[in-house]
Structures are given as C-alpha cells and as structure tokens.
Design a protein around this nucleic acid. Structure first.
Lengths: 408, 408
DNA sequence: GCCTTTCGTTCACCCGCACAACAAATCCCG
DNA sequence: CGGGATTTGTTGTGCGGGTGAACGAAAGGC
C-alpha cells in the first residue's frame, strides 16, 4: 500500500495532532487494524506508531488487542488496534422531507441506536421539527453509557446550507428559507454541543467515499434523488464546497428550454425531468406518494416504456455532470437507485451518447454501497471530523454523562 | 492577516520542506516581503523564519536586503527578502491554435524574454509543432545567465490533458489525439528537464488565482475562449482536476437540444452558441479570422444586436456553471473578455435570471487581471510548483548552464 | 529443533521550532 | 534633542517528536 503523506504542517505540534488523527481515521475506517499495517500506511517508524497508539489508548478511544488469529506469513504477529468498547460517539440526523431519522453512531460508523419520526407534509415550522428531532436525539442518547463522550451532532438537510455557519438558506421541500436549524435543535435540547449541518447529497458522497461504494476512490459524485435532485462532489478526496457551500446544485442545470416550469422560476431544469414529481407523473403515482417515490419504484410493475424517457433524461444529465466534474464514480442515491435498477440500459446509453470519450471511459455508475443509510452515515462523518483533525482537543470539549444532562 | 496553517505533515523533515516552500511561495507572490511579515503570515517564530530565509539564501534563491524605506509605525525596521538577482527560472509555453508563445519566466512571475511563432492552421504534425516550440525555447533561454538554473518547462495545451502523464488526449483545434507532446518537445530539445502539461483554462485559472483578478479568492473559475470554450476551476484554493484531469469541460454542456451540430458529435452544446465559430458567423467575420476572434471583437463596430443572443447564451451557460461550482469569481478569458466588454449587460442579466439566488449573490464576473498572459503565466506556475513543494529537491535536479547545453 | 522473518520495546540521538534574553533601530513625545 | 516605547534581529537553550539501532519475543518453514 502506498505511503500516506498528504499535506504538510507548520510545526511539530501540528504534526503530532495530525498523526494522532490519522491513526484514528484508519482505525475508524478499518475498525480493526494491526500496528504493523499502520506503520506501512503512514510511513512512520514502528516506535512512533506504538507511541501514538498508546496515547490514543490513554485517551480512551482505542484499545490494543492481543494479536489476532488471522495470520499471513512468518514473523511475530502484530498487535491489533480496535475501537474502545465504551468510546466516543456522535448523533447523526437525516432530515428528509417526510421523516427525520436520528441515530447514535459510534466511532467506527456503526449505528448503535436509531429512531424515526414523521414530519408533517410541507415541513411545518422549523421549531416544531426542531423539537421533534430533539426528542429523537434524547431517545437515541438515553441508552449510551454515561462514560461515553458525545462529540457532536451532524445534521443532513435537503437544501442549500451555508458553509460558514450552517444556516439553511433554502430547503424547498420543507418550505424553509434562512433557518438556523442548528441553533433551534440545540435550544430544544438545552445543551451546547458542536453541531454540523450540510446538504444531503454532500453527506451521501462523504459516506460513500469513506465506507461505501467509493472506498479508495478520490473523485466521486453522489446524486441524491430526494424529491429534488442534487449532487455531492468529492474531488481529490475532499468535498467540493464552493464559495458558500452550495456547489453541486445540478438539479437546475438547463435541460429542455421548451420544457416545464421549475419551482426555481426557470424553465426546463433537469429536475423537471428527473425530479420526483416528474417521475410520479410519468408512472401515474399519486402526489401523496411522491415523498416515498423510491418505495413506489421498487414495486413498480407498470410498462417499462413509461420510464424510458426519464432514464434517457437521467443519462443525458449525468453526461453533463461527468463532463464538468470528471468523476471516477457516480453513485445514484435516493429514489434514483430504484430508478436506475429499472432503466439501467437507457441511462447507460444516454450517458455514453453525450459524455465526452475521455471522461466517459473512466467513469462508472453504481448504486449506494450503504443502501439508504448513506446520508445518515455522512451526517455522522461530519460530526466526527473534528475528532480526526485533533483528537485531544475534540475529546477535551466533548460532553460526558449526556443521558443525565438531557433528562434534566 | 490570518495565520496560514493549511494541511499537516507526518514528520519534521516534511515540516521543514513545507515551510521552506511556503516562505518561497510568499516571496514569489509578493516579490518583496519583510521577514516580519513572513512571521505574521506563517505563524512561526522570528528565529525560525530567520533560519528558513538563511537557508533559502544559501540555496541562491532569495536575497536579504537592508530594511526598505517604506516604514509604518515604530520599532526596528524589518529586513527585506526578495528574489535573487540570478535566480531559478522556468520556461512557459502557451500553445494556441494559431501561434505558440514561449517565455522565460523568472521566479516571481516576470516574463524576462518572450518569443512567438505561428502554427500552421489545423495544427500540423505534432513533431513539427514540437520542433517549432523547441526553437523558441532555445531562443528565450539563450540570454539567461549561465549560473541560473532551469527548473522545468510548463506547457499549456488547448485540449484535454491526462493528469497522470501529461498525454494530450484530444486537442480538437490542433487535430491532435493521444499525443505525448512533452516527450516530443524534450526530444527536439535534446535535454531532460521536468515538463508539465495542462489544459489552457486550468492554467488561466491558476495564474489568475495566484497573481491576477483572483488574488486571495479561493473559489474561482476561468473560462477560456480560445476557438473552443473550457473552464478551469479552482476550489478551496486548489485545482479541480477530476479523475483523469479532464474536469471543467463545460463547452459541451447541453444548451439547445434543437441547436446546431457540435464537432463532438452531439447537438446543441454550449460551444455551438458561444464558441468562436458561432460568434464569427453572428458578426459576419470570415472563417480565416476565427483564430484571432478576440482582436476582431475588440474592433467590432457592427450592430450590437448581432451579439445580443450570444451574450444571453453566455450568461445562461455561466448560470449553469455558477450553480454547479458555486465560485466567488468567474474570469472571462480569451475572446470572451472582448465579448463581455461588448455585451456585459446581456450576460449579467441572463446570469441573474438563471442562477440560483444563493450561489448568485456571492459571484462576480470579471476580466482577466493578467490580460492575455493568464495562460502563459499559468504554465509558468505549474513549472514552478515542484520548487514550492520542496525547494531543496527541485533545485538539486535543476539544470544549470542551459544555454551551452541547448546550443551543443 | 533450529533458522528466518517480522514485530514489539527500549533508548540514545537528531532535527526543527519555540522561547527568553539581549541588542539594535526606529518612532514618539515631552 | 534626548529618553522611553516599540518592534525586530540575533543568539543560545530547551523541548517535543520522529528516527534508528539493538535486543528480545513470537510466529512460520524446512
């Protein structure tokens, strides 16, 4: 495996922080890894790795195990490093247009507990949704060991989220505009923990990159089909955010100048062809089921022909995306995964027809490796991010004995 | 000014390399900077900066000056750091569709010498162009001091360049396909120096970011109008390359499904509306002048109306780009800068009409800050890049006494 | 059963940056 | 005009953190 020497620092404190975080990132990614593997991955000395692991162990984040049974080749077996039994965790929130999913996610990415509640159609007032979410958070946090620190909350929002402060600029399907949803949830909870908000497609991309279909692929795009259509872009291994954090709004790329009116005010946006409302209309699905279009499509048994044009439109739009971003992988999430399963042929053909040969030859379309949990796990990942940037600092500010605090 | 602590390293050798490179990058950017400013910019200790500068001085890259006359406030004046009189340099090549421009560019970004030669229409065989370019390189290198080291050659190509090895996959207006132009030039030169190739739009973006209209702006796009239309994207301060290096091919975004046939085989690409051929047709400019469309437009005195639709098409296309990438700045390069000067109003209006409010409110359109030299200077920048990554290593492999070697 | 291989552990070492103390150069104010 | 305040250069010391060598431990292979 190739040495990982990405980026550089300015002084040796920063080096230590980074290396500590990188070790933890590897353990988080692999769940179980040997110290020998870590030395190879990080191109550091054996003794350095030993010391780093020791420090993480004393922080209560990882545990060392006796050499695992799985052996390969000669030599003394290497000590294993795994996540601590009672380790830090985060709360992940996936805000959909019809329901909120909240999960307690351990370092390592396992969903330990999960709770769901419906959201009234049209979203409802943000403070109502906020108190619903706060209730769900209380529920999933309840069972956590008192000693386990809560690192933060990650929230996925189906809309435009400003990078600088997490303000929800616009969430069309919730009918929100300039809502500070993070503060609302915190106020309803009555505690102060770090909260990260981001767009659902961005988080889907993040999760698929870290743990899903995009493992090891540094240039990928996750297209979220969630009433509206958006893209999360990872390029060179990092999230493409853009100046304000709004990059990837591909739903409003022009598609059919003579087409339908889009809610954004323009005519013929891509979303008017491959958005949930358009597809529902094509297959005669009632308006009320649009929010669960994925399930509808999974059980769709109507004529293939009804979706042919949609598949073609999907492929043409993907061609634009492939030309613009040159990804190695495009993951079709949300209801688009169900759609793709039905009309894969049309999509592939349309993509091949419109994409330039050079970017097309290296791109693959795929379904999410994490199923419908991509976005939720992505929300967990952003909440974990500070831990990897600086484990000592993140654990220092983490909240312990959370159950009692939230009950009181 | 905010401290610059971007990225982190893995060990202290890397820290040293990075800090050395960062100091040099700052001197390169400012040409003249005080050690006190460097300590503030890099958040390092005075003594550390002094040591770093000393090392760069002993490498022959920078010189320390007595405190400059420009004073501000009390206190002992700080020693200046400037580029060495006889310092390292690079050769930049801007390959256009009708001419090649070659320049000797010193560290600091000054064009010391420049030479130009026409390229036969249709490009001609790559080896012919290669030997033309090699001849120009000999010419600009001739006058360089024998002691000055040549760090490398940067070449801008109007087409798709594979990131991994610099292969020119496709350059439609040169009629090239899978040409290893770097090796061709090196063979014609008869020496072995590091050669970097990249797409012209990418290099325009790089140069405008480092020294032009995009100084200090970390999310910008340079749109190159150079017969075809392409975009170079910088996001988060780094070049967006994509999996193969082909990201930013916006010329073939779908625009008018019922429109003209594009050379890429599709119908209604954006390029068929705002490409040089389309504009030439709109203003009745003869085919033979298409390659110098910028000059034609600068002297255009015909009816404004002829370009109105083009301006609108430009604005609509930019809206897609703004939605997709969310840049803070869009620089219109090549003939697009001449076009924008003529139809600014139409472009701005069309952009405002189609772009989403959130990304639109923070974006600005502008002309290149470096005039027609953006791409050339971008080619110089990629050639300099290894120097900033590791000054010691780059200078170790640099070529000295180049004039004699190339003559022989 | 011995050799080889691989890894953990320990310790001395080196490198690079921080910090403190002092000197130098300039501004400011009386 | 002269002394304090301010800012920076210079020098020497100290510390943190990764390296590397030496040795022991735990496996596989013949």
């Amino acid at each position: 495996m190739t040495a990982q020497r990405r980026g550089l620092g300015t002084n040796q404190e920063a080096v230590r922080r980074h290396n500590l975080g990188t070790v933890l990132r590897h353990v988080h990614g692999a769940r179980q890894i040997s110290r020998a593997q870590l030395t190879a991955l990080m191109a550091l000395n054996r003794s350095t790795i030993a010391d780093l692991v020791l420090e993480l162990e004393s922080l209560g984040v990882v545990e060392q195990t006796v050499p695992t049974g799985v052996r390969s080749g000669a030599g003394r077996p290497s000590a294993g490093v795994r996540l601590a039994e009672v380790g830090p965790y985060v709360v992940a929130v996936d805000l959909g247009v019809d329901r909120a999913v909240v999960a307690r996610v351990a370092l390592g990415g396992d969903v330990v507990e999960r709770a769901t509640a419906p959201i009234p159609s049209g979203g409802g007032e943000a403070w109502q949704v906020g108190s619903t979410v706060a209730g769900l958070i209380r529920r999933v946090v309840e069972g956590a060991p008192a000693a386990a620190p809560l690192l933060g909350v990650g929230i996925s929002v189906p809309g435009l989220v400003r990078r600088s402060d997490g303000l929800v600029r616009l969430a069309p399907n919730l009918e929100w505009r300039d809502v500070s949803f993070g503060s609302i949830v915190l106020a309803a909870l009555g505690v102060d923990v770090p909260v990260q908000l981001a767009n659902d497609a961005d988080l889907g991309a993040l999760a698929e990159h870290r743990r899903g279909a995009g493992l090891g692929i540094d240039d990928l795009i996750y297209i979220s089909g969630n009433v509206g259509v958006g893209a999360g872009v990872i390029t060179g291994g990092v999230r493409l955010e853009g100046a304000g954090g709004y990059a990837g709004e591909v739903g409003h790329l022009p598609f059919a100048p003579e087409g339908r009116l889009c809610h954004c005010g323009n005519v013929g946006c891509w979303e008017t062809e491959v958005g949930a409302h358009a597809i529902a209309a094509a297959i005669g699905c009632p308006e009320s089921d649009v929010v669960t279009l994925g399930d509808v499509l999974d059980e769709y048994a109507g004529p293939q022909r009804a979706l042919g044009a949609t598949g073609k439109a999907l492929g043409y739009g993907l061609a634009s995306i492939v030309n613009a971003f040159n990804p190695r992988l495009v993951v079709l999430g949300g209801y688009l995964s169900s759609l793709y399963a039905l009309v894969r042929h049309e999509v592939d053909d349309a993509l091949a027809e419109r994409a330039l040969p050079a970017p097309h030859e290296s791109v693959t379309l795929s379904l999410p490796g994490l199923g419908s949990d991509s976005v939720l796990l992505g929300a967990a990942e952003i909440a974990l991010e500070p831990l990897f940037a600086d484990p000592v600092a993140a654990l220092g500010t983490a909240l312990v004995d959370v159950g009692a605090r939230l009950a009181g």
